[in-house]
Amino acid sequence: MSSSGEPLRADAERNRERILTTARRLYATHGLDVSMACVAREAGVGKATLSRRFATRDELITAVFADRMDAYAAAVAVALADPDPWRGFTGYVQAVCSMQAADRGFADVLTMAFPTAKALEARRDEAYHGFTELIARAKATGRLRADFTAEDLVILLMANAGVVAATQDAAPGTWRRLVGQMLRAYAAPGADLPPLDPGPTPTALYRAMIRLARSRDDEAPQ
């Protein structure tokens, strides 16, 4: 058995899956600021083992979020297939922001560039080009403002990532209010729009503000 190498390969695969499962959990909860050392410790493997499986942080991020990037690209195809381009546009914006809300790590991935992560960046480029086509179609209906650009979505994703991080515990779902209001800003006069989410209660939003202030105090130099 040892000469064939089968036990070693099985052990290596178990370590890889343990690392991915742990990184996925940590990134989803804490975002991409989690260190490689923390991932190794939580996965119960040594730093050398982690480095053998994933030589760089970008390699680990690519492996963890491969399926989510596939879903991100697929969401554009779904939107383009909608016979109503404006409905496809609004549905796509809501879908992508929902993906961010479900996973803090993915919220970060969509607002950061990873030049060495070729597969991840290829999927991002695919989604970007599909979205530019969706923009053109939605503008042609007269319901999307003529001055909307693809970069406006990037700005929204950055804002949404911040809202998700600040409110996910005390006021979850706040992001829906942000997205609804932004769709109203993007719409041309008279365009039909999805119902506007009522947003968080004053008490829930206040709790989120307190939590955010405390987290920043914890991070401040002592």
Rank of each mutant, 00 (worst) to 15 (best):
Val34Ser: 09
Leu110Gln: 11
Met69Ala: 13
Thr49Gly: 00
Asp103Ile: 05
Ser3Lys: 12
Val109Lys: 03
Ala127Phe: 06
Tyr72Cys: 11
His30Leu: 13
Glu219Ala: 15
Gln100Asn: 03
Ala119Val: 10
Glu151Thr: 12
Arg16Tyr: 12
Ala107Leu: 10
Leu157His: 14
Leu178His: 12
Ala37Thr: 14
Gly173Phe: 12
Ser4Gln: 04
Arg124Asn: 13
Leu20Asn: 08
Pro200Cys: 07
Met99His: 10
Pro115Lys: 07
Ala37Val: 01
Gln100Leu: 08
Asp125Met: 14
Leu193Thr: 06
Tyr92Gln: 07
Met69Leu: 15
Lys118Trp: 05
Met209Asn: 04
Leu134Thr: 01
Asp192Met: 10
Met182Val: 14
Thr22Arg: 14
Arg124Pro: 06
Leu20Phe: 09
Ala63Pro: 10
Gly190Arg: 02
Ala66Glu: 07
Ala23Ile: 03
Val96Ile: 00
Leu205Gly: 08
Asp152Gly: 03
Thr21Glu: 13
Thr174Gly: 05
Arg104Lys: 06
Arg124Met: 14
Thr29Gly: 12
Leu110Ala: 01
Ala37Pro: 07
Val78His: 01
Pro198Thr: 15
Ala113Asn: 07
Ala117Gln: 10
Leu178Lys: 03
Arg211Asp: 14
Met1Phe: 08
Asp152Ser: 02
Gly105Ile: 00
Ile61Met: 04
Ser51Lys: 15
Asp11Val: 12
Ala74Leu: 05
His30Trp: 05
Tyr27Gly: 13
Met182Gly: 04
Ala150Ser: 11
Cys97Val: 03
Gly46Ala: 15
Gly190Cys: 10
Met112His: 04
Asn15Ser: 14
Phe54Ile: 09
Ala127Trp: 02
Val96Leu: 01
Ala136Thr: 06
Met1His: 00
Arg104Leu: 15
Ala165Val: 03
Asp70Lys: 01
Met182Tyr: 07
Leu153Asp: 02
Asp58Tyr: 08
Tyr186Ser: 02
Asp33Pro: 02
Ala75Arg: 02
Ser51Trp: 14
Thr49Lys: 08
Leu60Cys: 02
Ala150Glu: 00
Ala37Leu: 13
Ala140Gly: 14
Thr149Lys: 03
Gly199Pro: 02
Pro198Met: 15
Ala140His: 09
Thr62Ile: 03
Arg87Trp: 08
Ala75His: 01
Pro195Ala: 15
Ala136Trp: 08
Arg9Val: 06
Gln168Leu: 11
Ala48Gly: 11
Ala107His: 13
Ile135Cys: 09
Ala140Cys: 10
Pro202Cys: 08
Ala170Val: 04
Pro198Ser: 15
Glu121Ser: 09
Ala23Thr: 00
Met69Val: 05
Ala208Gln: 15
Asp125Glu: 14
Gly105Phe: 04
Gln168Glu: 13
Ala12Phe: 07
